[in-house]
Each structure stands twice: as C-alpha cells, then as structure tokens.
C-alpha cells in the first residue's frame, strides 16, 4: 500500500485489478480542506487513461515492479522489439501503448523500463536527448514570417522546428516531452 500523496510520475498501481502507471499528478488543496492529489493514470495494455482524485492520506495499491535495462533493436510497425541487456530475453512491446516513441528511441540505445510480469509498463526516455539531423529543408531567404525557423528530421524520424542555421549532419538537443528544439550541439 502507498499513500496517494506519495504517488509520483512513474509509480505503478493496481486499479480494479489492472496495472496502471501514473503519468501525471497534481496537488489540489480546497480552501480549508484536506490535501488531495489528482492523478492521471494510464493502462499500459489498453492505453486507457483515467483520472483519479484521492485524498493524500488515502491508500492506493501499488505493485511490485522491476526496473530493467532494455536495448531497443527495431520496430515492425506494430511492436517494439527490445532486449533485456542482462538476460538477453527479448520483449515485444505494442507500439500503440507508447505513441511517438518510435521517433524518440534510437536503435541500439539502452532504456530503463518498468516491468510488471510480462508487461512493460513504462519506457524511460531522458527528458533531453541529442539527435542527428538526417534531413534539413533549405531555409527560404527572406522568409521571416515563421520567426526564421524551418523543419528538420532526425535520424529517428522526429520532425523538429529549428532555427534556420541548423544543417544536415549537425546534432541538436531536443526536449523529448514537448519535442521542441533546445540547442545545437557541437561535437
């Protein structure tokens, strides 16, 4: 059991027998009332997102999960194929449960994963990641309406809006939550 107030992003819970992972939490404090926490929970198997508001002192059923390091190998359009780097066991993880992750994960890279039984509940992607610019549009001269930005595509297929000086073959740091350009990385 865990107190609702101690649930953090990434905490795995059992709700009506189904594993859910907390993807967002917000404290709400009614004037002159006990502290509450509003949780956004996601089911890794169905993708269902539900909102639960609990008193910080309420008990919730947390589940024992294992943290494992998985190497991302490839995706087949339906599943991510990943391998436990310690045991070499391979896992297939439905891509639908992790939308956009195919554009964020790099082939061969190792990611920390939250595993419950045979289910991968969470894949942790660092909040800032350096990507290679695989394709860059030519900047159009004199086009300053867009605040002098253009789109590039990273080696993972992620489209990012960047300042016009970014060229193909350069490296950029990206905020993986907002998918926004942060800075150019000089290698």
């Amino acid at each position: 059991m865990i107190k609702a107030g101690q649930i953090d992003k990434g905490t795995a819970l059992l709700i009506k027998g189904q594993p859910f992972i907390c993807i967002d939490r917000e404290f709400v404090n009614p004037g002159k009332g006990s502290a509450f926490v509003r949780l956004k929970l996601k089911s890794p198997s169905t993708g269902q997102v539900l909102q639960e508001t609990m008193k910080s002192q309420d008990n919730a059923e947390d589940i024992n999960v294992e943290m494992m390091d998985f190497q991302y190998m490839y995706n087949d359009g339906e599943n991510f194929h990943m391998m436990n780097v310690d045991t070499y066991d391979q896992f297939e993880i439905p891509m639908a449960n992790f939308p956009d992750y195919q554009y964020l994960m790099k082939d061969g890279e190792t990611y920390r994963c939250t595993v419950y039984g045979d289910d991968v509940l969470d894949i942790q992607i660092p909040s800032k990641v350096v990507y290679l610019v695989a394709e860059a549009e030519e900047a159009i001269k004199g086009d300053t309406v867009q605040g002098a930005t253009k789109y590039v595509t990273t080696e993972t297929g992620l489209r990012v809006r960047v300042p016009i000086f970014i060229k193909q073959g350069e490296k950029i740091r990206v905020n993986t939550e907002t998918k926004e350009y942060l800075e150019r990385v000089n290698s």
Binding site: V28, P30, G33, S34, F36, R38, T53, K55
Partner: peptide, 14 residues
C-alpha cells in the same frame, strides 16, 4: 462530512 464534500467538489465542481 467535509472530506466527502471535498471529494465531490474537487472531482466535479472545481
């Protein structure tokens, strides 16, 4: 009573 009231208030009103 006020704890239950706050559950209703926070879930539906606020």
């Amino acid at each position: 009573w006020d704890d239950t009231f706050n559950r209703i208030f926070i879930n539906f009103v606020e």
